[in-house]
């Protein structure tokens, strides 16, 4: 059935064509269409190799390119979302050398050669990462736009050993804003993956 083959992006493109799927005060960047414009011929460029989800991806970029834009616009990895583009919302959270960072305030040039994990790299062999499965099971989302960033942050939080209490989870998830307010279910999802008493297991 063709409808089942639709990707989320196809849906978003169609939705945007049919008008105003999200006009929330400029909070969200519009869906990407087509290839990014190449930098002007006289601009300086930098050659970088981004190691994304285990694959080396050489790119020639305008030095101004953020890691977020490199992932989305140049590599087509649109799972990482652009929310505020100023480090305040966490929608663009990825792991850089195993640590969670906001990719909107990371220059792609400064991520050269470093290991990058995005939401696309969490599932292994077609099986969801336990945190992804927990977000599904606990309904840890409504519109879903912040969800990739929430999940990348949650995976890191557990690895950091910060899933010690609900209060700690809330504090150490404070870099990820959910405009829909799915916070209770997000906390439940994280708690289910990292039982509060099992901090050693949580690591």
């Amino acid at each position: 059935m063709a409808a089942l083959d639709w990707t989320r992006r196809t849906f978003l493109r169609l939705s945007s064509l049919t008008g105003g799927w999200i006009a929330a005060g400029g909070l969200f960047a519009p869906p990407v269409s087509g290839e990014p414009a190449p930098p002007p011929a006289d601009a300086e460029t930098v050659a970088v190799t981004l190691r994304v989800n285990g694959t080396a991806r050489p790119l020639t970029l305008d030095p101004r390119t953020s890691l977020l834009d490199a992932l989305r616009e140049h590599l087509g990895l649109t799972g990482t979302k652009k929310g505020c583009d100023m480090g305040a919302c966490g929608a663009c959270t990825v792991h850089l050398d195993g640590r969670r960072v906001v990719s909107c305030l990371t220059l792609a040039a400064m991520a050269d050669g470093r290991a990058i994990t995005t939401i696309e790299g969490l599932a292994q062999g077609g099986r969801l990462h336990p945190m992804q499965a927990a977000f599904v099971a606990h309904d840890g989302m409504q519109c879903g736009y912040c969800t990739p960033g929430q999940i990348m942050s949650a995976v890191a939080l557990v690895r950091e050993g910060r899933a010690t209490s609900e209060a700690a989870i809330r504090e150490f998830m404070s870099g990820n804003i959910c405009r829909c307010g799915a916070y209770p279910n997000i906390v439940d999802a994280i708690t289910s993956v990292a039982p509060l008493s099992g901090s050693s297991e949580a690591r």
């Binding site: 480090g87 966490g90 959270t93 850089l96 640590r99 969670r100 960072v101 906001v102 305030l105 990371t106 942050s153 890191a156 939080l157 950091e160 910060r162 150490f172 404070s174 870099g175 990820n176």
Partner: peptide, 9 residues
């Protein structure tokens, strides 16, 4: 200060 992501950077 800031958020966990920003503190990592």
């Amino acid at each position: 200060s800031a958020s966990p992501q920003v503190r990592n950077m």
